[in-house]
């Protein structure tokens, strides 16, 4: 395990240095960091080791599929291809002169980008890991867990007992599959994002948006009578306040998942930015003597990020469970707003 971590760190360091050197000329830490955090049509593992991912475009309803390598010439310069061009990490329609065309309407980009590819890898990993575990449960029925099973079992039990049972109540079983899936999805992707060359998937707002929307939809659709009555006729509040209360409560429904979305995105992206910034210091000062300090801080941050990876998965799952709990809770007495948004 220790060896693995050392290997990880060394890779991260090397890949950051290589990246900076490859860009040549003046070092721009902002560009380097943005490039690392943002999505891409290629997967750049190390200098010279680049995977060109497929581009899928829906142009006015017509699908177009081609390799992103078409956007690069032999000198690795960006060139237009087939009437499309790559600019600042996005694909646009190009006009005859190779400039960005004025009309960009109804051009949808469904490319398998670095993030999407990383998503597929993480999902494959999730499926393999948990199918294996399910298999060992089927094999060793009623027996003590072993191997990978015994690593994940306490986590699964923790999610069941401390997150689901504690926050949802007796109806927790319905939400277990979703809670387990988001927990492990976020955790796995957070960790994969920390791998050298890994994509910043959970630090991408589109991904957190989808996850938060799922939580929102599940909350809204499992809301019982007392949940809705709290929104449209909050007990203990005079009727004349309804014009204020109802919009506030409705906004409240949306702000909860919005906070989930921003929290995960910001935490993961910030972690990446900090680690990359620490490495950038070496190149900003153009001195090898800054490196030990930089690396020491980066290692500290990396450990912190390993913790944050788990923590954010836990918080997302916990808050989702709280929202579900609020939606299915039976309010027996007036003014029982037990489920606030525990900000982290």
């Amino acid at each position: 395990m220790k060896k693995l971590f050392i290997l990880l760190f060394s890779f991260l360091t090397i890949s950051a240095q290589v990246e900076a050197a490859a860009e040549g000329g003046e070092f721009k830490p902002g560009d380097m960091i943005t490039h690392h955090i943002a999505d891409d049509y290629t997967w750049h593992f190390a200098d010279g080791v680049t995977l060109y991912l497929p581009v899928i475009l829906i142009d006015n309803g017509t699908p177009k599929v081609f390799s992103s390598s078409n956007f690069y010439d032999e000198n690795h310069a960006v060139v237009p291809y087939d009437g499309y061009m790559l600019s600042h990490g996005h694909i646009y329609r190009a006009d005859a002169s190779g400039q960005q065309a004025a009309d960009q309407s109804s051009l949808l980009d469904f490319s398998i980008t670095k993030n999407v590819a990383s998503l597929f890898i993480s999902v494959a990993l999730l499926l393999v890991v948990f199918f294996t575990i399910a298999g060992s449960y089927a094999k060793g029925k009623g027996r003590a867990p072993k191997g990978i099973q015994s690593f994940f079992e306490p986590i699964i039990i923790f999610i069941r007992d401390e997150i689901a049972k504690a926050n949802i109540g007796p109806k927790y079983e319905r939400y277990m599959p979703y809670l387990l899936t988001i927990f492990f999805f976020i955790w796995f992707n957070n960790l994969l994002g920390l791998m050298p060359g890994g994509a910043n998937l959970t630090g991408n707002i589109a991904v957190t948006l989808v996850l938060a929307t799922m939580t929102l939809l599940i909350t809204v659709f499992s809301g019982n009578k007392s949940y809705w009555s709290h929104i449209f006729a909050t007990p203990g509040v005079p009727t004349w306040l309804a014009p204020i209360m109802i919009p506030v409560e409705l906004i409240g429904i949306l702000t909860k998942p919005f906070s989930l979305m921003v929290r995960l995105f910001a935490n993961i992206t910030a972690g990446h930015i900090i680690i990359l910034s620490l490495f950038s210091l070496i190149f900003i000062f153009e001195s090898i003597f800054v490196a030990p300090l930089s690396v020491a801080f980066a290692i500290f941050m990396f450990f912190l990020e390993l913790f944050v990876a788990l923590l954010q998965a836990y918080i997302f799952t916990l808050l989702s469970a709280m929202y579900f709990g609020g939606a299915v809770e039976e309010h027996d007495h007036v003014g029982d707003h037990g489920h606030g948004d525990g900000a982290h």
């Binding site: 943005t34 949808l108 980009d109 469904f110 980008t113 999902v123 707002i205 992206t269």
Partner: peptide, 22 residues
């Protein structure tokens, strides 16, 4: 702004993949 603008492609793939995985 680039960072906080969700892309349609990733939203699509994330939704589809996540639902299948779920």
């Amino acid at each position: 702004m680039e960072l906080v603008t969700p892309g349609i492609g990733l939203i699509f793939w994330q939704t589809v993949t996540f639902i299948i995985v779920l």
